[in-house]
Amino acid sequence: MNFQLTEEQSALVAAVQQILQDHADLPQSARAASHWFNETLQALLAENGYLNVGREFGALEAALVVIEAAKMPVLTEVAATALIAPQLLGEESLEGPVAILNGRDLSRAHRNLPIARHALIDLGDDVALLPIEAENVETVPSILAYPFGRFRRPPDLRAARRLRCQAGALRHWWRVALSAESAGAAQAAVAFTLNHVKQRHVFGHPVAVFQSVQHRMVQCHMVATALYYLALRAAWSGKVYDADVAACYAQQHIKKLVVDLHQFSGAMGVTNEFALHLWTYRLRALQTEAGGMVECALDIARHR
């Protein structure tokens, strides 16, 4: 048991933080947007090998990159490309961004579909690996802080490549990925709100002075911290139980994070100019994925 990053892992995190920080700011034109996908940063992450760490180093290292990317106000797609795809495709690389879709309902809007080059579709037993035709995707506006889109016409799954009996692995790593992404978003949302409550004065005091605020902020901090380690353990072990636990913990606490952090941000928190939604509404988008909290909890119970 050793919770400290190795020298190599520390160097990886520091390096990816540097490149992310250099491109962290939203452009003026996107200040009021529900999200902003930074295509340039996405390309830089790919060119510099950060989307390949899952293959080169392992799932834990990929999860560390996912967490760092999820802390940024600008959006990149790292989780599916760097963490999930290598677990299904091994040495074969897949051009991202990648969208992960539940094949039971392809008619609805899907996260990351408008930016995706490929989709991995859970078909129950098999996975379909589908190249995305941009002209077949229409963007769907949403307050959820990812690009959402739906197919204009149903995708031709017969033409898609089948990854036989890989759907279980997809759902497993989807849960690891959403836990890691939630951990990064939660840490950033807590840090952002903490800064706000220390700066913002009400009734002559900083908001942070009130015990009712302090206790709930600590609980949010606890969730974000626990989630970080649960996600990394799930990535490290590759065990289904650990992935179920991490995703279940994330999804059962997203309500608390969203409600409390917006509550402490007051009316400012409902504006898009106030950046909190960039993380909290990512969390909301992740709340029902890979089965959602109840499916994860049922799977945990089946292990016991």
Partner: peptide
């Protein structure tokens, strides 16, 4: 399933507590 899901959620919370405790030892 209601009972099962509640048990699963509780187990997840205990696992979170486990890792936070391990972190103190670490």
């Amino acid at each position: 399933p209601v009972m099962q899901s509640r048990a699963g959620m509780i187990a997840a919370k205990f696992e979170a507590a486990r890792l936070l405790t391990y972190r103190v030892v670490d």
